[in-house]
Every structure is written in structure tokens, then in C-alpha cells.
């Protein structure tokens, strides 16, 4: 269901949800429960494999750890359990940091996981992001695999010749290879540009997908995002 939504609709809904997550007050834990339920609904509707989502959520682990450390490093320790003291304000805000990181990244994963990259960029175009930015981003993504694979081959060749760096001062061959990779990427860019110009490239890419949004799509995604906003508005009013 989520896969079929127009990309720009999904981008707007995800950004609204992320804003709601970012401003939800730590003093109202139930607001986070409500947002988590909404996220759960979107996850189920997206039918993304749980393992796919779980491995990608791991990028926020450092920030979750930081959030869990906050009660102990923040000022004003007013709670104690045996020799361990912590701050209750810190515990609340720290937990909020941890939960926000997970909810925010999950929303982004659903967006990225249900939308093909060129369509996502097309959605940004529709949202009036400067075409230079989306054009650079699209070339970047198109050639990321090529450049990364080229570096992988250089690295494999070095390993085959016995290069197995373990310390920073052994990094020179890798860095030199990176320099060569930059030169190759640059020269490839020049060749691609000339090839495209000879085929009539004017500086903007033609739109390949007609991802027009229907009122139904806006209604569906809008209802979901509006629910998140409603939860947070109520929480802010109650907390105030």
C-alpha cells in the first residue's frame, strides 16, 4: 500500500511525522507511545521485511546509547538506587532522545524502503527542490555503485598483493588509491558529460516517471501525518 503512494506525498508525510517526533515533549511519554503506534501502522502497511528494517535501525545505536547515558552525565542528580545516582529530568530527556532517534530513523527507512531512488528524486523535483541539487544527487546515486565497486577492485588487488593495513601509518597505499579513484571519477565525469552533451543534454534530466498524486493518496498519507500532529499537539497542550 505504501509502495504505491506518489513519492512526493510520502516525503511530505515523512517530514511531517519527523517534525512531530522531534517536538513531542519528553514530559508526555504517552505521546511517544501514540507516535510509535502510528509508526507501527505504517510499518505493517509497508510490508517491509522486519529484518530489513531492524538492520537499518542499527545506525542510531550510538545515539540511543548516548540517550541512556544522559541521566548519569546530566546535572542535578536527585535520584538514587544504592550507590548509583542519576537525574530524573535527565532520565526523561535521555529516554526521549533514544525514542526519537528510533522513531525518526524508522520513518526514513519506510520512505527509502518503499520508494525507488529515481522516483524519490522525482518527488523532490515536484516539491520544488532546485534541479541542480536533484541532478547532482541523481548522478551521484547512479555512479555510486560504479565508484564504490572500482574502489573495491583496487582494494582487492592490494589485498591480493599482501597489503593488509591495521594501523593508521600503513594507510598510505589506500589513500593513494583513493587519490587515483578521485582522478578516475573526475575523468569519468568529463566523459559522461561529453557523451550526454552529444546526445542533447541541456542540464536537466527528462522526467521518466509520471508519479502524479491522486486525492486518495493525499487523504491516506495526510490522515496518518495529521494523526501524528494531533497526538503531539494534545501532548503539548496538556504539558503546558
Amino acid at each position: 500500500m505504501v509502495h504505491h503512494l506518489a513519492p512526493h506525498v510520502k516525503i511530505v508525510a515523512t517530514v511531517v511525522f519527523a517534525v512531530a517526533v522531534a517536538v513531542a515533549p519528553p514530559t508526555a511519554p504517552w505521546a511517544f507511545v501514540g507516535l510509535a503506534v502510528l509508526m507501527g501502522v505504517a510499518l505493517v502497511a509497508s510490508r517491509l521485511p522486519p529484518a530489513f528494517v531492524a538492520t537499518r535501525v542499527l545506525v542510531v545505536v550510538p545515539f540511543v546509547v548516548f540517550g541512556l547515558l544522559v541521566p548519569f552525565v546530566s546535572s542535578g542528580h536527585d535520584m538514587a538506587w544504592g550507590p548509583v545516582t542519576w537525574s530524573s529530568v535527565g532520565a526523561r530527556t535521555g529516554l526521549a532522545i533514544a525514542v526519537r532517534s528510533v522513531l525518526g530513523v524508522t520513518a526514513s527507512i519506510v520512505l527509502a524502503g518503499t520508494t525507488e531512488l529515481p522516483r524519490l528524486l522525482g518527488g523532490l523535483d515536484r516539491l520544488r527542490v532546485p534541479p541542480t541539487i536533484t541532478a547532482i544527487a541523481s548522478f551521484m546515486l547512479r555512479y555510486l555503485e560504479v565508484v564504490a565497486a572500482e574502489f573495491g577492485r583496487m582494494r582487492a588487488a592490494m589485498t591480493a598483493r599482501g597489503h593488509d593495513p591495521r594501523w593508521l601509518w600503513q594507510v598510505r597505499p589506500l589513500a593513494t588509491a583513493s587519490g587515483a579513484l578521485f582522478v578516475r571519477s573526475y575523468e569519468r565525469g568529463e566523459r559522461v558529460h561529453l557523451a550526454m552533451q552529444s546526445r542533447g543534454f541541456t542540464g536537466t534530466m527528462p522526467r521518466l516517471h509520471d508519479d502524479a498524486a491522486t486525492p486518495g493518496m493525499w487523504a491516506l498519507a495526510g490522515a496518518w501525518a495529521a494523526a501524528a500532529v494531533a497526538v503531539v499537539v494534545v501532548a503539548l497542550v496538556v504539558a503546558a
Partner: peptide, 15 residues
């Protein structure tokens, strides 16, 4: 010159 060029160098930084 350079939208593909900027994209390719972006791919390099990304990599």
C-alpha cells in the same frame, strides 16, 4: 561543464 562531474565527485566523497 559539470553537473555529471559534480555528481561523480559526490559519488567519490560518498564512497
Amino acid at each position: 561543464r559539470a553537473i555529471p562531474l559534480a555528481g561523480l565527485t559526490g559519488a567519490f566523497v560518498f564512497a
